[in-house]
Design a protein around this nucleic acid. Structure first.
Length: 206
DNA sequence: CCATTGATCGTCT
DNA sequence: GACGATCAATGGT
């Protein structure tokens, strides 16, 4: 498909917010579908209460503690997969959650993987929808995006100017709500809806 | 358009 | 045993 160059590992081995900002507008490709990233969220390592790395290394989050440029894929709410790109120096355990994008190639394939989508803007609008549209799942946890011949690749795409980048608190996150580490392309219809963090519903019936 | 709720299970306490 | 970095369906304004 696209013959665009893959991003070098040095791109990912920088401070997590810097990488998150630079990921906007870039293209993520896998198995016949290309998505232009429109929304991302930064998560730091053990010092970030909202991060999966907050309580140290476990079997699930082990990839976060490894080298930058690998995919950290986790299982969410018993039915969805979400994908992060590991960032920063090795061991920093920081990562960027890929929250949403616009399908720019492979529309027919993406539609077949997302039959409940109401329109094309909804195909990859949300972290689990994005992985579904691209066909990314558990087998891609730890995938190296920088290796030559990688099945999942991040390519330059089209840069987004500073004026078009908005930021705010992370979606569905209660802890560290003051860190406005969610970045998105202003006004883009493929950006997901905001939902505040905190716990839903309280009581078990007596 | 907005708010609420069930689905469903790996992970960590 | 409780809790999610979520989604889709439902019912109301």
């Amino acid at each position: 498909m696209t013959a665009a160059p893959v991003l070098p590992r040095t791109f990912f081995a920088r401070e997590v917010m810097t990488v998150a900002r630079d990921l906007l507008g870039r293209h993520l490709e896998h198995d016949g579908v290309v998505v232009r990233l429109t929304e991302v969220e930064a998560y730091a390592g053990p010092d970030d209460p909202a991060s999966h790395a907050y309580r140290g290394i476990t079997p699930r989050n082990a990839v976060m503690f490894g080298p930058a440029g690998h995919l950290y894929v986790y299982f969410s709410y018993g039915m969805h997969w979400c994908a992060n790109v590991v960032c920063g120096p090795d061991g920093a355990a920081s990562a960027v959650l890929l929250r949403a994008g616009e399908v720019v190639e492979g529309l027919a394939v993406a539609r077949s993987r997302r039959t409940t989508a109401r329109g094309d803007a909804e195909l990859a609008r949300g972290p689990a929808r994005l992985t579904a549209a691209l066909g990314i799942g558990r087998e891609h946890d730890g995938a190296d995006l920088c290796r030559d011949g990688a099945s999942i690749t991040l390519t330059p795409g089209h840069p987004v100017p500073d004026l078009a980048v908005a930021h705010g608190p992370r979606v569905g996150v209660g802890a560290a709500a003051d860190r406005e580490w969610r970045l998105w392309v202003t006004g883009d219809p493929t950006v997901s809806a905001y939902r505040p963090g905190g716990r839903r519903r309280g009581g078990s019936a007596p």
